[in-house]
Design a protein around this nucleic acid. Structure first.
Length: 985
RNA sequence: GGGCUCGUAGCUUAGUCUGGUUGGAGCGCUCGGCUGAUAACCGAGAGGUCCGGAGUUCAAAUCUCCGCGGGCCCA
């Protein structure tokens, strides 16, 4: 009875994977793999939540399989690895998708449409492609709990976020300020940096040099700008404290500018004085236009950001229209002026009635004219630079100061840096590179968004006295807001929350919520605790913090990787994760980023349906280091499958085919390793060396090295050497010890390989495991994914033996080359090969001499020392290294020729068996016709021929009759004509 | 425009941190061999300005600087 199910030589991976998926589903294998480790040391993972309002992209799939590999590996290593899925559901990108659908173009239109309806649409849209996400996730084998995911729009999640914001607020870190943000005056909305990045275009803007007259002196500061309209908001002029400035006489006027920027002047000038920038500090100048200003203004200040690359070294500062401008004015305690409204039009604050209500960019020309008239324009030209435009409507964006709520990250800078110290980054350069630099220069977090679909900012302000109150829980909300429905399903989103009004504790006035929602990056940054509804439900969070591992693509460095660290540092002063793997992106075949607009996004689903998930996974793992960009190639996926998965399959196929024939049962055999052959000990040694390397690489997230090592092992060591060299041992008909050793060794290697590869290619390994383990060893785990990861058995690693095999391989290669050079095919037996080498080497190789003999098809292998061997003419020589060479005796005699002829005949008969697709065990009869030499050779070697070809009878003559099936062919072997026929029942 | 990163045969890549034999593989190509040996395998061959330039050094794919190109982030 055969113990193993027989297989087809060609695997149908797609079908196999679907069967395995069904099996896992039925057996609850994932759940059991997690549960089995309950109580063990935890390996905490946080899923970076995707948004399901679009289809999953190849990059998402890559991230998912890398996560899966690591989590499966850690589970098999004995860790308790829970995996909670998550969905990111808030934010501007969601709103924009809905706006597209509704055809709205501004906030105003949304309000008209109704916030309630709009938010409902947003909520509906975020799971539009949930099914596709779930299917793709399952199909690629990513084991994650999608039945109880965390969802950022859930009340419980929002409540945790609120709690955390209140923590921050009560420490005085959540404050209201102004932020200069890119703003579309037509859509009346701020844009995210991502949107802004999409809209840069090269444009020509005016370039003007403006003269600012110093008070009490007939001297002008010369400043340069490309945005004349911002001059109405001018508050200060900035110079660099250390650079040299010059007073120059031009015609009748005295101008001040940086010495290094004298090029900016036209015509003749005379330098009449030099001074440092800091010497100019505090000088007051006359306002260009009479615009009301709150606070101090119109004096010269110093700033490090002033450069000498363009302009005059004197920078016009308008805090309402520039981020640097705003910050420097704030730092120096200067005032503020905002003569532009939210539509980008001048307000009545400016002293020119004809410009009131005019769009700022349209006013440039007239402003220049007015300067000219007042004699304040030094010169005018145009300037080509890149400027951002609204990606939706094409309007030029304005940098515009808006009221905004901030988290004071700057004051947490040292803590952020200290916490980053505790994190291992893969690749390492990010730690102090991109990420570290970012932390060094960290800015306060602009948290609020003047939008609709997001976690509402939980701050209420008294309309009477301005008192602030931050609500940290639903409980607190209900307490404060009389008349709020007490049922628990009150939706915390806008617009409902907007209607909740408090009574002010201070003055009894009405408190209303700040209308903003918060940046959705804060939502996902809160995932470590909010996914467990901490602190309202405590236990899970405490066991799951900090996380051991997160991984996402490189673009998350300043995204989620940062928001996690920022939130966690602000609230717990702990790093939220200890290891972070940053993945590269997937580019198309030409190395260009995949994007919808370019239409070069690959359809992963079709690859999964035609080639399979294991092949895709293996490609991702082997293609390059995980942190580098992959040039995606569908052809390469198929190639790797052919190369690796097919070879693995064929090794397995070879085993089950012969193990079935021989009714081999591993449960009944136990043979100590030292009793097995050198070949067996060698492959086991290689296997254990491999296990060691794979574990080492995986611990460093060098997934590509681990995978490539296994691939080399399977193809070179196992298939092309061990199995090829050992196959005759399996063909022996009768029971014998050596055959048992071979079966047992191959079996053990395959089982270990299954476990080793299970995290990489979970489907095919499960399939193989089910057939070769579960069928015979019932006490074993029911799934390969429930097994322990292999650990290397050092006692089986024999470095010396591996060395010797290396040497033999080299000798074989040399021998084959010698044959090739001499034009003698391998089927032709030769008399001897002489290896000239050191004594040390010959001792090494001597135990493996049988392999050499067989591979090179020679009757004898001799070892000689260099000094003692003189090669005759009949030897073909091939050098190996300085003191090693191989000499092949290429002389032929009658018996060698005859033996060669016999092997040729056997080869033909085997070919004919294959033509008929005969069963491996089917017996045949042979009939032949040929000359005397053929007849003699066949007679002399009839036993050998019968054994090799499973012939029960060999007769001379032509086949005829109808009792048997006849397959006949005429062959030319060398110069001889031979007729061969095989007869089968 | 700035920061980080990658650039090695037609393609995919190892080697770069830690400078030192003749820069290794695989796919593809040419020739030969082998096959109850798997869309496989073996041997040989063609194919490299190691992105370009400069520098450091006895010696540079490797270290430094300046460019060019791709990618990401930021403006």
């Amino acid at each position: 009875m055969a113990y193993f199910r027989s297989e087809t030589q060609k695997a149908n991976f797609v079908q196999l994977e679907e069967e395995i998926l069904n099996g896992w589903n039925k057996e609850k294998t994932f759940e059991r793999s997690v549960a089995r480790r309950e109580g063990c040391e935890k390996f905490v993972f946080i899923e970076g939540p995707p948004t399901a309002n679009g289809l999953p992209h190849p990059g998402h799939i890559l991230t998912r399989v890398v996560k899966d590999l690591v989590l499966r590996y850690k589970t098999m290593c004995g860790f308790y690895v829970e995996r909670k899925a998550g969905w990111d559901t808030h934010g501007l990108p969601v709103e924009i998708e809905v706006e597209k659908e509704l055809g709205t173009n501004s906030k105003h239109e949304i309000e008209e449409y109704g916030i309630e309806k709009f938010n409902q649409k947003c909520k509906d849209s975020v799971f539009r492609y949930e099914k596709e996400w779930v299917n793709a996730t399952k199909r690629v084998g990513f084991w994650i709990d999608m039945d109880s995911p965390y969802i950022t729009f859930d009340n419980g999640y929002i409540e945790s976020v609120w709690w955390s914001l209140k923590e921050i607020w009560s420490r005085g870190l959540l404050y209201k300020g102004y932020k200069v943000v890119p703003y579309c005056p037509r859509c009346e909305t701020t844009l995210s940096s991502h949107e802004v990045a999409q809209g840069y275009e090269d444009v020509e803007d005016p370039s003007i040099y403006v003269k600012f007259r110093l008070k009490q002196e007939q001297i002008f500061m010369l400043a340069w700008t490309t945005t004349p309209w911002t001059l109405f908001g001018n508050i200060a002029l900035a110079v660099h404290p250390e650079h040299t400035y010059v007073k120059v006489k031009v015609k009748e006027e005295i101008l001040i500018l940086a010495e290094a920027r004298l090029d900016a002047l036209d015509g003749e000038y005379e330098i009449i004085g030099r001074l440092k920038g800091k010497d100019l500090e505090g000088k007051e100048y006359e306002q260009l236009f009479e615009v009301p200003v709150e606070g101090e203004s119109h004096r010269v200040i110093t700033a490090e950001f002033v450069t000498l690359e363009e302009g005059t070294g004197v920078v016009h500062i308008a805090p309402a229209f520039g981020e640097d401008d705003y910050e420097v004015c704030r730092d120096k305690g200067l005032g503020f002026s905002q003569p532009v409204d939210s539509k980008g039009q001048f307000t009545s604050e400016i002293p020119f009635p004809s410009l009131v209500g005019v769009f700022v960019k349209d006013a440039d020309k007239r402003i220049i004219e007015m300067l000219e008239q007042r004699g304040l324009l030094y010169k005018e030209s145009t300037y080509l630079h890149s400027y951002p435009f609204c990606w939706r409507c094409g309007s030029p964006l304005l940098y515009y100061a808006r009221e905004s709520w901030f988290i004071g990250m700057k004051s947490l800078r040292d803590k952020l840096i200290a916490n980053n110290e505790k994190i291992n980054w893969y690749p390492e350069h990010l730690k102090y590179g991109r990420f570290g630099n970012f932390l060094e220069n960290i800015e306060d977090w602009a948290l609020s968004r003047e939008r609709f679909w997001g976690t509402p900012l939980n701050i209420w302000i008294c309309e009477e006295c301005g008192a602030e109150c931050c609500v940290g829980s639903i409980e607190e909300l209900k307490e404060r807001a009389k008349g709020l429905p007490q049922e628990s399903d009150f939706d915390l989103h806008r617009p409902y929350i907007d209607e909740v009004v408090f009574r002010c504790d201070e003055c009894g006035g009405e408190m209303r919520r700040v209308e903003d929602v918060i940046d959705c990056w804060y939502d996902s940054g809160a995932a470590p605790f909010a996914q467990w509804h901490y602190p309202f439900e405590n236990e899970e969070f405490k066991r799951n913090f900090p996380a051991n591992f997160i991984t996402e693509a490189i673009d998350q460095t300043r995204g989620w990787f940062y928001s996690l660290l920022a939130v966690s540092t602000a609230i717990f002063d702990e790093p939220p994760y200890l290891n972070v793997l940053s993945l590269g992106h997937i580019l198309d075949e030409k190395g260009v980023k995949m994007s919808k607009s370019k239409g070069n996004v690959v359809d992963i689903t079709s690859i999964l349906n035609t080639t399979g998930a294991d092949a895709l996974r293996w490609y991702f793992f082997t293609a390059c280091p995980p942190w580098e960009d992959i040039r995606f190639s569908e052809l390469a996926i198929v190639e790797r499958q052919k190369k690796f998965l097919n070879t693995l399959w064929n090794s397995y196929f070879f085993f089950v085919t012969y193990a079935s024939i021989d009714e081999f049962n591993p449960a009944e055999k136990a043979i100590a390793m030292e009793k097995r052959s050198a070949m067996d000990r060698w492959i086991m040694s290689r296997l254990n060396s491999l296990i060691k390397e794979v574990i080492g690489s995986l611990e460093r997230f060098e997934i590509h090295l681990a995978a490539r090592r296994v691939e080399d092992f399977v193809i070179d060591d196992l298939s092309n050497w061990y199995i090829r060299r050992s196959r005759r041992r399996f063909w022996v008909v009768e029971e014998n010890f050596d055959k048992d050793c071979a079966y047992l060794t191959l079996y053990e290697v395959l089982v270990a390989l299954c476990k080793l590869l299970a995290p990489f290619v979970p489907f095919v390994t499960e399939h193989i495991y089910q057939n070769i383990v579960r069928t015979v060893l019932e006490e074993e785990q029911e799934s390969v994914h429930l097994c322990d990861y292999p650990s290397p058995d050092e006692s089986l690693i024999d470095a010396e033996l591996e060395d010797s095999m290396d040497l033999v391989t080299k000798l074989v290669e040399a021998g084959r080359r010698a044959r090739s050079d001499a034009g003698i095919k391998i089927r032709q037996p030769l008399k001897e090969v002489v290896v000239v080498c050191s004594k040390e080497k010959s001792e090494k190789a001597s135990s493996l001499v049988g392999i050499l003999k067989d591979e090179l098809n020679v009757r004898e292998v001799k070892f000689e020392e260099k000094s003692e061997f003189v090669a005759g003419e009949r030897y073909k020589q091939v050098g190996i290294d300085e003191d090693t060479a191989l000499f092949l005796d290429i002389s032929l005699d009658k018996s060698l020729i005859e033996e060669g002829l016999v092997r040729d005949l056997v080869r033909r008969i085997q070919g004919m068996r294959k033509d008929l697709d005969l069963d491996y065990t089917a017996k045949i009869e042979i009939m032949y016709e040929g000359d005397e030499e053929v007849k003699e050779a066949i007679n002399r070697f009839s036993d050998y021929i019968s054994e090799e070809t499973l012939a029960v009878d060999i007769k001379e003559g032509k086949a005829s009759g109808s009792a048997k099936e006849i397959h006949e062919k005429r062959w030319k072997i060398g110069k001889k004509e031979v007729y061969l026929a095989i007869l089968t029942a």
